[in-house]
Amino acid sequence: YWITCCPTCDVDINTWVPFYSTELNKPAMIYCSHGDGHWVHAQCMDLAERTLIHLSAGSNKYYCNEHVEIARALHTP
């Protein structure tokens, strides 16, 4: 949970406070499906809480801010 998930990541173990109602003692993470995949903080991706809950409940693929354009290009005929 205490990783630098992207170039603009500002989640710090020493200063972090809950942002989403689902967070208690660690930041919400979401899995990016690009390549071998990697974890990113939901807050760093500017996800709305409703979107985070929807993604967490389903089996939808998610692409982080850095990889979403690549994913779109691969799926565009």
Score class of each variant (00 low, 15 high):
residue 29 M to L: 14
residue 13 I to Y: 15
residue 59 S to A: 14
residue 49 E to N: 06
residue 30 I to R: 04
residue 36 D to K: 03
residue 61 K to I: 15
residue 62 Y to V: 03
residue 9 C to F: 01
residue 8 T to E: 14
residue 22 T to K: 14
residue 8 T to W: 02
residue 54 H to T: 08
residue 57 A to P: 11
residue 20 Y to V: 01
residue 67 H to T: 05
residue 31 Y to L: 12
residue 18 P to A: 11
residue 28 A to C: 08
residue 72 R to W: 07
residue 4 T to Y: 07
residue 15 T to M: 12
residue 69 E to M: 15
residue 47 L to A: 09
residue 53 I to K: 11
residue 75 H to S: 10
residue 25 N to E: 15
residue 55 L to C: 13
residue 47 L to H: 05
residue 6 C to R: 03
residue 12 D to L: 04
residue 37 G to P: 14
residue 42 A to E: 00
residue 56 S to Y: 14
residue 36 D to E: 04
residue 34 H to Y: 09
residue 29 M to A: 02
residue 59 S to T: 13
residue 60 N to D: 12
residue 75 H to P: 08
residue 11 V to L: 06
residue 50 R to M: 13
residue 53 I to N: 15
residue 31 Y to F: 10
residue 30 I to F: 04
residue 23 E to H: 01
residue 56 S to D: 11
residue 1 Y to L: 09
residue 2 W to E: 05
residue 22 T to D: 08
residue 72 R to Q: 09
residue 45 M to Q: 13
residue 29 M to V: 05
residue 47 L to D: 02
residue 18 P to N: 02
residue 28 A to S: 11
residue 76 T to W: 04
residue 69 E to C: 03
residue 31 Y to R: 11
residue 73 A to W: 09
residue 75 H to K: 12
residue 63 Y to V: 10
residue 72 R to N: 14
residue 46 D to T: 14
residue 69 E to R: 13
residue 70 I to M: 13
residue 55 L to Y: 11
residue 70 I to H: 06
residue 22 T to W: 08
residue 15 T to I: 09
residue 60 N to Q: 09
residue 52 L to P: 03
residue 53 I to M: 13
residue 67 H to Y: 02
residue 69 E to Y: 04
residue 76 T to M: 11
residue 1 Y to M: 10
residue 23 E to V: 00
residue 58 G to D: 13
residue 51 T to G: 10
residue 72 R to K: 13
residue 30 I to G: 01
residue 56 S to L: 10
residue 48 A to Y: 09
residue 51 T to V: 10
residue 66 E to D: 10
residue 12 D to V: 04
residue 64 C to W: 00
residue 69 E to K: 06
residue 52 L to T: 07
residue 44 C to W: 00
residue 59 S to K: 14
residue 76 T to A: 12
residue 26 K to R: 12
residue 24 L to N: 13
residue 9 C to L: 01
residue 63 Y to G: 03
residue 36 D to R: 05
residue 33 S to I: 11
residue 17 V to S: 12
residue 55 L to T: 07
residue 1 Y to H: 03
residue 36 D to M: 08
residue 5 C to G: 03
residue 36 D to N: 06
residue 7 P to A: 02
residue 67 H to I: 00
residue 24 L to G: 11
residue 69 E to D: 14
residue 14 N to R: 07
residue 44 C to P: 00
residue 20 Y to A: 02
residue 42 A to Y: 02
residue 71 A to P: 11
residue 52 L to S: 05
residue 25 N to M: 05
residue 50 R to H: 13
residue 1 Y to F: 09
residue 57 A to S: 14
residue 75 H to C: 07
residue 41 H to P: 01
residue 31 Y to P: 05
residue 34 H to F: 04
residue 10 D to A: 14
residue 13 I to M: 04
residue 34 H to L: 09
residue 67 H to R: 05
residue 65 N to S: 14
residue 59 S to V: 09
residue 8 T to A: 03
residue 27 P to L: 00
residue 47 L to G: 02
residue 74 L to G: 15
residue 11 V to R: 01
residue 21 S to D: 07
residue 49 E to I: 02
residue 75 H to V: 09
residue 19 F to W: 14
residue 46 D to C: 13
residue 21 S to C: 13
residue 51 T to M: 08
residue 15 T to L: 15
residue 54 H to E: 13
residue 12 D to N: 12
residue 15 T to R: 02
residue 26 K to N: 11
residue 70 I to P: 05
residue 25 N to S: 10
residue 63 Y to Q: 11
residue 30 I to L: 15
residue 61 K to A: 13
residue 31 Y to T: 06
residue 49 E to V: 05
residue 75 H to I: 12
residue 6 C to F: 04
residue 43 Q to V: 08
residue 33 S to R: 07
residue 73 A to Q: 12
residue 14 N to A: 02
residue 5 C to R: 02
residue 68 V to N: 05
residue 31 Y to D: 04
residue 48 A to C: 10
residue 19 F to S: 07
residue 76 T to L: 11
residue 14 N to M: 12
residue 3 I to N: 10
residue 54 H to W: 10
residue 64 C to T: 00
residue 41 H to C: 04
residue 71 A to F: 05
residue 39 W to Q: 06
residue 2 W to A: 03
residue 55 L to S: 12
residue 33 S to D: 13
residue 56 S to G: 12
residue 13 I to S: 05
residue 25 N to L: 14
residue 75 H to A: 12
residue 61 K to R: 04
residue 40 V to M: 09
residue 45 M to T: 03
residue 21 S to A: 06
residue 21 S to R: 08
residue 42 A to S: 06
residue 9 C to Y: 01
residue 42 A to V: 05
residue 58 G to N: 03
residue 22 T to P: 04
residue 61 K to Q: 15
residue 67 H to G: 08
residue 39 W to N: 05
residue 54 H to Y: 06
residue 58 G to P: 12
residue 33 S to W: 09
residue 9 C to H: 01
residue 50 R to W: 06
residue 60 N to P: 08
residue 59 S to L: 09
residue 48 A to D: 10
residue 21 S to F: 07
residue 4 T to S: 11
residue 67 H to Q: 03
residue 27 P to G: 00
residue 25 N to K: 15
residue 57 A to R: 11
residue 31 Y to A: 06
residue 68 V to T: 04
residue 43 Q to I: 02
residue 21 S to L: 02
residue 54 H to V: 12
residue 25 N to I: 10
residue 73 A to S: 09
residue 2 W to V: 00
residue 77 P to W: 05
residue 9 C to W: 02
residue 66 E to Q: 10
residue 1 Y to D: 08
residue 48 A to S: 10
residue 48 A to G: 09
residue 67 H to F: 02
residue 64 C to M: 00
residue 66 E to W: 06
residue 45 M to S: 05
residue 40 V to G: 01
residue 47 L to V: 13
residue 71 A to T: 14
residue 37 G to S: 01
residue 1 Y to N: 05
residue 20 Y to N: 09
residue 28 A to P: 04
residue 53 I to E: 06
residue 29 M to E: 03
residue 72 R to G: 13
residue 32 C to Y: 00
residue 10 D to C: 13
residue 26 K to M: 02
residue 3 I to C: 08
residue 24 L to P: 02
residue 20 Y to D: 02
residue 55 L to I: 10
residue 70 I to A: 13
residue 57 A to N: 14
residue 39 W to C: 03
residue 40 V to Y: 01
residue 10 D to N: 13
residue 17 V to I: 07
